[in-house]
Structure formats: C-alpha cells, structure tokens
Design a binder for these strands. Structure first.
Lengths: 131, 131
DNA sequence: TGCACGCTAACGGTGCGTCAGAGTTA
DNA sequence: CTAACTCTGACGCACCGTTAGCGTGC
C-alpha cells in the first residue's frame, strides 16, 4: 500500500505495466527519477511520477528514443508549472511539433499493424492447407 | 534493374523497405541468405528471397525475435516444398501455433496503438492550451 | 523477527547504425 | 574510365534482462 501518496517501485510497476528494471533504467538516464527516497534508500514515486511513466510507456511503441521523451516530459512540465508565460508558450509549441511527429508515427504504426494482421491471416491460411 | 530475375541488395532494400545493413544482418544470422552471389561477390536475391524479407519485415512489429522468424520461414518452406506429407503437416501445425501467437500480439499492438493515439491527442490538447 | 520487497553493481544480449578502406559493375 | 554500387570487418549504441550479494520495511 501507498503511504502518504508515495508508492514503492513494485506497486508502480504493477500499476503502469513496466518492469522494475525498466523503471530503474528510466531513473539512470534521468528520464523519470523518483521524487523521493525512503530513509533506507527505497525509491518513492508520486502520482505525478506514475503519470510520467505512463506517458513514456504509451509513447514507446511509436519508436521515440528516451531522449525524445525527455523533451516531451520537460515540455509538459513547463506548461503545467507555467511560471513565465513566454516559456510556457514555447513549451506548448514544442509539444505541438512533437505531437505532429507522433501523429505521423501513429500512421506508420497503423500500417505496420495492418501488414502484421495480413501476414497473420496468410499464415493461418497456409496452415489450414490453403495456397 | 534485375538481370535474370535476381536483384542486388540495393534494389531489394528499396523494394522491401529495409536498410542494406539490416538485410546483410539477416544473412549474418542465417535468417534470409541471398540465394546466390555474383562473380565479384555481390549478393543476389530472387523473388522468393524478397518475399522472405517481406515476411520478416511484416512480423517484426509484433516483437518476434529473429530466431522466432527462423521457425516461420522454415515452416513456410516445408509446407511449400512438401516432400514428406508428415513433415508438411507438422510444419502446418507449427505455423498454426505461430499464427496464434501472432494474433495475440496483434491484439497487444492494437492496444498500444490506441494508447499512443490517446496520448497524442492529449499532447495536442495541452499544446492548444487545454487542461 | 521473519519474509517479502528493494538496492546497487555489472555483465549479457538483440538488432541493427555507422564508419573505413577496398573491390565490382554497368 | 569513372561513377555508382557493393563488400567485409569492426566498433558503438539503445534498452533493457538477468544474476549476485546484500540491505529494508512492515
């Protein structure tokens, strides 16, 4: 259970569907560091951290590098904390450009899915004795 | 242009949409070796080879290892050349099992696509000043 | 106090990208 | 003859999986 709105890595892994190793790796490369540690050194994640992990998990199938993800998370953070309005608007533009790339890749992924489904059917047909 | 129904690696790469390096790598691991070489050592691919490359390319988004692909190509080959009927039917069963795994993964991929599309829309919304 | 849970190295592996330097082909 | 194409190493890299040995927390 979460105490104080902070989760240990195992609980986070289950919630989000990432392995412990992956979550730790995301800290190693400064992508999603836990916002805290317990006295004994256990990683502690907030709901916002978990949300960041979810963003990464959902963007990964689009083939973005972890470095690309950095930008996205940074831009989202900028927009959210919105101190300087100029910085916020720059972040929004960055986000918009990224979203365009994401849309393209969604298209690519749709194509790949269609191809994969087609070849799966072919395999079934051949397996069934088809020509 | 292809002479004699055999293509050089560059032409194959363009037709199939794989890099030269990838195609060479598939030979290194004995996944799709070219069925011939020119006098000077250039790889020469037949239409059947190109077809194998396409199979691999289309299955890749499902996350299968190149080793898994070996099985598929081998099974397809078995079914096609069909010498021994017992071997052919074993190959068909192998293909069927593989197709089941492929279907599962198509489902996973559909989920991932849906997630990716959702988060892309979220990014657009946030970029547009949404909350 | 036990037992699940977590921690930090550190090595391993897949699937290519990317030169470099030299040979081949049309 | 000369572009354009291809060849063989060989190193590098991203993204984790997987022990191994040891500390934490409820």
């Amino acid at each position: 259970m979460a105490i104080d709105g902070r989760y240990q890595i195992g609980e986070v892994a289950e919630q989000v569907g990432l392995s412990l190793r992956t979550i730790r790796h995301y800290e190693e490369v400064d992508l999603v560091p836990p916002s805290g540690r317990s006295a004994g050194g256990f990683r502690l994640y907030t709901d916002a951290d978990v949300e960041r992990l979810r963003v990464v998990k959902h963007l990964k199938p689009l083939g973005f590098s972890l470095e690309d993800m950095q930008e996205v998370l940074a831009a989202l953070e900028e927009v959210r904390t919105a101190g300087d309005p100029a910085a916020a608007s720059a972040a929004r533009r960055a986000l918009e450009r990224f979203a365009e790339r994401a849309e393209e890749r969604c298209g690519d992924l749709r194509t790949k899915l269609a191809n994969a489904e087609a070849i799966t059917r072919t395999m079934q047909r051949v397996a069934a004795g088809g020509r």
